[in-house]
Design a protein around this nucleic acid. Structure first.
Lengths: 336, 336
DNA sequence: TTGTATGCGTTATCAA
DNA sequence: TTGATAACGCATACAA
């Protein structure tokens, strides 16, 4: 019981393969009666064009790849990614594109890229110097970067990481905090070099320095609840506890707050916490989280729109970084 | 600057196409020296096998479709889906499979199914009688259903929806609650018919009836924060307010709780709330949410494992429904 | 308006 | 061990 092919339809409808193909793809090119007849036969036989064969011929797969730097398991633990996907998905659906999730294959994004049958990629947080970028270029696949360092010839969607971080730091300084800790993003070796972590850290540091504050202690963390828990424990292990924390993700901030409360730390009286992202959850936790809002879904939409444009042959350029906004809620208070 | 093809490599390495193909796919079939030489040339030229051409030939795409009943925009608003995806992704990565997100195309899942170049599907919540099931059968594509009614010949992953709901209801009854409301799942027209909503509702109803309680009022909702907010407003519009609520999703429960607090309702003193799912967030909100835990990621893993087995030609059967467990936290209290 | 013939880039069969 | 060559299933330029 093999699949119904175009030839089967053609034979049953007493026309050629080409006519069947036209009936599906360019109905206006042939007579209406023929289209009707062919389609009726096709439907009766249960024919559906083979997507792979069609792709090989048209050189279009009708799907785009969503490149993630780690496993699905890890990346989707952060609600940020869901929101980003939602934005991308919105535009994809407008253009009948499906989305392929492409994590590294055996640790290598390069090989995963080569195996993905897609028309282009949206990539989340690709570090400068990553060889995947060369692979992308070599294959000539359109690609839009999100939350990455600008690359020559590749459009990148970014937010004003520095400005958001600066606003967050300024808020804490204004509240009288002087012993401020930073919960970083990713491994220490990455932080100083590049990426959003570095930009945010610069925003924190410069603002604090400009106010005459001491350089903040920085503890590494990821974008998960658990990493926020770990960050708290690390901070509280030291003799002098900070009176305020600047986190680079809401998830880490929320994990940190939960653990702080478990340790009997009063929030925000004894510890002010500022997050980053403003994921929906930030306004549902207790205390509600003061955070730097970034338009997550909009980033996804922009990236997808740009990719669609590029698929259409247009030359696209990186837009201006999107604005961030400090959202003051209950997790920050005046230093006592 | 067209893409490097297998013939280019063959010519440059002075071998035939077949030899190049062997070097990539069955290195043990040809001499080691040849493999080495061919691979060196391939690498120098930047050759990567064309995934679509390869698929057409092997009849394998190396990716599976994740069928969702609504747009990505809507479906990914529920953290439940992220967790499910994480489970599926975990197994996929073990088998070098990528995941294609397949939402309805112009409202029709059927056409979306036909266009997806995948080896099989995992489908979330496909209702009985959905014609997509016929399409799947016709195309002969392996498919595993999650949270759906059992279909003849199609393996389905389910949890003990009834038992979980019954435990939740029993818990509230035990706490002395008699005026209990249910926050449903989906449209009223679907609820009575089939699906997890119906099974959970039956669990609530039968348990309450067995205890001699009055039939619960049921208000419809979805699986989003906003639908929980709406459900609260609808409940509070009536004269007699319930003293406890059974929600069919944590997200709805969390939305309901947030709105209740805004209306000055004390939680859990004046209103007990039970959720369903036990998404991570359930233990981060205030009060922490009493809920029915289901192994979300495990469902994803099971579905993926079954699909992989089916792709391997094995005949698979629906496993036993996975156990649920009532997790008692702070959102439920004795009726005053 | 319809049919024929070729290309898409691999894999795999069968000879050599 | 390697090399021609036929599928794979469809789209499309070109011919009729």
């Amino acid at each position: 019981m093999s699949r119904v092919r175009i030839a089967d339809v053609a034979k049953a409808a007493r026309v050629s393969n080409a006519t069947v193909s036209f009936a599906f793809n360019k109905p206006q090119e042939i007579s209406e009666a023929t289209v009707k007849r062919v389609m009726a036969v096709a439907h009766r036989l249960g024919y559906t064009p083979h997507p792979t064969a069609r792709s090989l011929s048209t050189k279009r797969s009708g799907s785009i790849g969503f490149l993630i730097p780690q496993s699905v398991e890890v990346v989707f633990a952060n609600p940020f990614v869901s929101d980003l996907i939602r934005g991308v998905g919105e535009i994809c659906e407008q253009h009948d594109l499906t989305m392929l999730l492409v994590p590294p294959l055996n640790g290598s994004l390069e090989s995963a890229i080569g195996r993905a049958a897609v028309d282009g990629f949206i990539s989340l947080g690709l570090n400068t110097g990553d060889r995947s970028l060369d692979t992308l270029r070599r294959l000539g696949l359109p690609c839009i970067l999100v939350d990455a360092d600008p690359q020559p010839g590749i459009a990148t969607i970014n937010i004003d990481d520095f400005g958001g971080a600066a606003a967050a730091a300024a808020h804490l300084l204004e509240l009288g905090h002087r012993r401020i800790a930073v919960v970083g993003l990713g491994e220490p070796r990455d932080r100083g070099e590049s990426g959003i972590g570095a930009r945010r850290l610069a925003g924190y540091r410069q603002t604090i320095r400009a106010a005459g504050g001491a350089p903040p202690r920085v503890v590494p963390a990821g974008v998960t609840f658990a990493s926020g828990q770990a960050a708290f424990r690390q901070l509280w292990r030291a003799k002098h506890h900070p009176t305020a924390v600047l986190a680079m993700s809401d998830m880490a901030a929320i994990g940190l707050m939960a653990t702080a409360r478990e340790h009997g730390v009063l929030l925000p009286e004894e510890l002010s916490v500022v997050g980053y992202d403003d994921i929906p959850m930030a306004s549902w936790v207790t205390p509600t989280l003061t955070t730097v809002r970034q338009p997550i879904a909009e980033k996804g939409r922009q990236a997808a729109r740009l990719l669609v444009a590029q698929l259409g042959g247009k030359h696209v350029r990186s837009p201006q970084p999107l604005a961030t906004e400090l959202v003051i809620r209950e997790s920050t208070a005046r230093h006592r």
